[in-house]
Structure formats: structure tokens, C-alpha cells
């Protein structure tokens, strides 16, 4: 889901850079306001944590592997604005240092996985879980938050790919950037995420929340926010 350079035209990546810059600026203000100086290294820790979650490729029936993004669980544990910074920082490091995802596409990648996904996951968790810490509700909410968060991010990515042939064509009608139209990009991304990767994200979110509810429930931001 990391968009490389070359697939998005300037008409797409420029607005996404702008949207991400605005989101980072708001997130930094919120993080500065909400976190004490002592907790600022904590955001970096969350970013490193997200990076490692992405490195664990788990086998999926059919012989392929997939990895979780971790944006959902970070949003549940640390709050959505902290997740915006943490996941974006990981995506920037991956693009600059490890060549995973394009430089021009940093804005779009961060918007999809670093802004939309944490907020969707956070809202789904709050809506379904309703702040419950016991019974099956928080587990269902955790699974759905990971599942829906990644699916929405994947659909957004597919739309960004799919609109390229519509908005950027050469004089001969040839697509200048991503070549796949919406009719191919959306079903391809939707199917593999609805039936594979989003399930994995949901399971990882559920398993991690299960551990935290059992042994470290005081660390969960979403439940603290409810109490507060």
C-alpha cells in the first residue's frame, strides 16, 4: 500500500502533500498541548513500535504474507493525533532511508495510512466499543477498528490510483501516471484488503488490545479518555 514515485501525477501528490502538512501541523500542536515534555520521546517510541509491527510478515492462507500497519492500535492506545505523528514519521523514514514508498508520494501515503486510518480506527473503536473494558465488546470493537481503518485507507489509495488515467493523459490518450482505471484499481485493492490484509490488521489489533486490557489497561488512551 506504500505508493511509489511515478504512480501519482503532480495534480494528485501536491494536494495530498498540502493535506498532510496541515494534518501534521494540527497534530504537532495537539501533541505539544496534550503531552508533557516527558512524554514527547514516547511519540518516537510509538513510531519505532509501528515500524516493527510493519516488519512482522505473517503467513496468510494461500501462500502469501501480509503485515499490519498498526495505525489502529496506536490510535486506540495513544490517541489519534499521536498516531498521526507516529505513523507519518515511520512512513517518512521508510521512504527516505529504506526506499519503501516514493518521496513525491509521502503526502499521499501519510494521508492514507497516517491520517485517515488512525481516525477511522479510533472512531470505529469508540462507536462499537462505547468505552467498555469488559466482555466481548472491546474485542469486537478492536477487530472492526483495524479492519475498517485499513479497508478505508486501501480504498482511498485505490481511488488515488484509479483517477490517474482520468486526470493525466498524453496527447495520444495514453495515461501519464498510474495506468489502471477505477474499474480495476478499486476492485483489486478492495478484494485483497476485504478478504486478507484488513482481517490481518483486525486480528493484530484485537490480539494487542487483549494483551493490554489484561495486563496494562491503564495505558489505553481510549479508555482513559472515557474515564476522564
Amino acid at each position: 500500500m506504500h505508493i511509489p514515485d511515478g504512480y501519482l501525477g503532480p495534480q494528485t501528490y501536491m494536494p495530498f502533500w498540502a493535506a498532510s502538512l496541515v494534518s501534521w501541523s494540527i497534530a504537532l500542536k495537539k501533541v505539544k498541548k496534550e503531552l508533557s515534555a516527558k512524554e514527547i520521546p514516547y511519540v518516537s517510541m510509538a513510531a519505532a513500535f509501528s515500524f516493527l509491527i510493519m516488519m512482522f510478515n505473517i503467513p496468510i492462507p494461500g501462500g502469501t504474507t501480509g503485515h499490519a500497519v498498526g495505525a489502529g492500535i496506536i490510535a486506540i492506545l495513544l490517541g489519534p493525533w499521536t498516531a498521526v505523528i507516529a505513523v507519518s514519521v515511520v512512513l517518512i523514514i521508510q521512504a527516505i532511508v529504506f526506499g519503501d514508498g516514493g518521496i513525491t508520494a509521502i503526502g499521499a501515503n501519510c494521508f492514507n495510512m497516517g491520517v485517515v486510518m488512525p481516525f477511522v480506527s479510533y472512531w470505529v473503536f469508540k462507536l462499537v466499543g462505547g468505552g467498555a473494558a469488559k466482555g466481548p465488546k472491546p474485542y469486537v470493537a478492536a477487530f472492526l477498528s483495524g479492519y475498517v481503518g485499513l479497508t478505508v485507507a486501501a480504498l482511498l489509495t485505490a481511488i488515488e490510483f484509479g483517477i490517474q488515467p482520468l486526470i493525466a493523459q498524453g496527447a495520444d490518450g495514453r495515461p501519464l501516471y498510474g495506468p489502471y482505471p477505477l474499474s480495476i484499481a478499486v476492485p483489486a485493492m478492495a478484494l485483497e484488503h476485504l478478504f486478507l490484509f484488513s482481517i490481518l490488521e483486525g486480528v493484530v489489533t484485537l490480539l494487542l488490545l487483549k494483551y493490554f486490557l489484561k495486563s496494562e489497561s491503564s495505558l489505553i488512551y481510549t479508555l482513559r479518555a472515557k474515564e476522564g
Binding site: W24, L28, V31, K32, I40, P41, V43, S44, M45, A47, A48, F51, L52, I85, A86, V89, V90, I92, I93, V97
Partner: peptide, 13 residues
Amino acid sequence: LFLMILTLSYKYI
């Protein structure tokens, strides 16, 4: 602040 978070994250990784 953003750069500090970026630097620390890189080291923590």
C-alpha cells in the same frame, strides 16, 4: 519538534 521525533524514532528503530 517534528525533527526531534523523527531523529529519536530512527534511533529507537
